[in-house]
Design a protein around this nucleic acid. Structure first.
Length: 428
DNA sequence: TCTGGGGTCCTGTAACCT
DNA sequence: TCTGAGGTTACAGGACCC
């Protein structure tokens, strides 16, 4: 039971599923309960996407190469992941959140911010609502989550992290400095390995030490935006509101080859496949892309990007591919060893809003109609049911160079805004 | 040890426009 | 007509998140 008014001044909840993908897998395979389970790519270049706390005890964490994770924890069960299932569980959980308040801002499949200002009268204060949500999620989905309660998004997020696993943490306004200042600078949103290294060079190890450095000094060291941002966060100031349904800004696909590739024909084929997949996602979301970008990562991990803005926005795979190919060919790579290629559609606009422009652009519609038919076939017979002839083996089977296991079963682009706030990757 | 995939944001530079 | 300043846009790269 929660004492009345314990979260006065706190209206923001951050709810984060515990080891989400792995927990869903354990729910599906009850015989794995209490054992180390890793969800991730099993190939020679696969990485861990999610791991149960039993696996984490061995030092396993997300983004670690699976091969290394298995050296640390040889008894772990490795599962490839089932994004469609995780998305379904996520939809149910988000629907539960929306039954409490319309102000739900999903950050990824497994976490969301809730503003419960308007829900208090019905359900108690924010901390009581947090307890209620945790119980409902467990009852309905059989998985646990952790909740942070605070007056700002940033502090609520840190609070849920400190409550993990299967806990709740309420940080009242008067407690924010005591909570925040002992934390390492790396806990701040926007401080990754590079910035942390810079801050350590300045002798700043904790948020409290950073808070007492003049904002001007931080701005000089880190740039005006990052300097101001970190100074504000270090004093618990975060004006961002909980915003439901944010507009997507880009979507795309990339693929790491199982082994490095130096054959331009193979790269071209991969660019076509990635363009088709990206376009299908544009169409399913009702968007057109104004800009196409490609990403190329070489064997030594050096990465470059190139982009081009289209005269007429598109959701047609062939048009994305034509631009991607021009960008790639312009690099003039002479059988360089390539590890990864990617295609992204950027500067998205709603398809309806661009109807006029399309007519003016007099685009050829036959190809789009064919791709729409392929979408319908994919819905009926499964992804890849229809694809360009160049992506087929001679015997008609779908074919390509062996990239890593694709773990991407997502149905649409993320509403993520990165830079420290959103993503669709579970955990950590 | 050897680094996936899907995102956003910031910064610097160059080109373009007024 | 030419020129320079200042603003805007496009592009590329890097950092970050999970």
């Amino acid at each position: 039971m929660v004492e009345h008014g314990r979260s006065a001044g706190c209206t923001v909840l951050h709810v984060d599923m515990d080891a989400f993908f792995a927990s869903v897998e354990v729910r599906r395979h009850p015989e794995l309960a209490g054992t180390p389970v890793i969800v991730g790519g099993a190939g020679n270049r696969g990485v861990v996407t999610s791991a149960t706390y039993e696996a984490r005890r061995y030092g396993v964490h997300a983004a670690m190469p699976t091969a290394r994770a298995l050296r640390l924890c040889p008894t772990a069960t490795v599962l490839p992941g089932d994004m469609a299932l995780y998305a379904e569980v996520s939809r149910s959980v988000m629907a539960l959140f929306r039954s409490i308040t319309p102000l739900v801002e999903p950050l990824s499949l497994d976490e969301a911010f809730l503003d419960v200002t308007g829900a208090g009268r019905r359900l108690g204060d924010a901390a009581e609502i947090g307890e209620y949500l945790r119980a409902r999620v467990f009852d309905e989905q059989g998985i646990t989550c952790s909740v942070g309660v605070a007056g700002t998004k940033f502090v609520a997020k840190l609070a849920s992290t400190s409550a993990k696993p299967d806990g709740i943490r309420n940080v009242r306004p008067a407690e924010v400095m005591d909570f925040l200042h002992p934390l390492p600078v790396g806990a701040l949103w926007g401080v990754g390995p590079k910035t942390e290294e810079q801050l350590l060079r300045l002798g700043l190890r904790t948020v409290g030490e950073l808070a007492h450095v003049p904002a001007k000094t931080l701005q000089r060291a880190l740039g005006p935006a990052a300097g101001t941002h970190l100074h504000e966060l270090s004093w618990g100031r975060d004006p961002r509101r909980v915003v439901p349904d944010e507009q997507e800004k880009s979507t795309g696909h990339e693929e790491t080859f199982g082994t490095d590739v130096d054959d331009p024909a193979v790269i071209h084929r991969e660019l076509l496949l990635l363009s088709e997949r990206t376009a299908a996602r544009l169409r399913s979301g009702g968007w057109l892309a104004r800009t196409v970008s490609i990403k190329v990562r070489f064997a030594d991990f050096a990465t470059l990007t190139r982009s081009r803005t289209l005269e007429v926005p598109t959701d047609v795979g062939k048009e994305l591919y034509d631009t991607a190919r021009v960008l790639y060919d312009a690099l003039g790579l002479d059988r360089a060893r390539i590890r990864l290629v990617g295609v992204r559609a950027e500067r998205l606009i709603e398809a309806g809003s661009a109807a006029q422009q399309l007519e003016l652009g007099a685009r050829e519609h036959g190809r789009r109609d064919a791709e729409l038919a392929a979408d319908r076939a994919a819905r009926r017979f499964g992804a890849g049911a229809v694809r360009p002839a160049t992506l087929l083996h001679r015997d008609g089977r779908p074919g390509r160079e062996a990239p890593l296991t694709s773990r991407n079963g997502r149905s649409g682009p993320s509403s993520s805004r990165g830079g420290g706030t959103r993503s669709r990757h579970p955990e950590e």
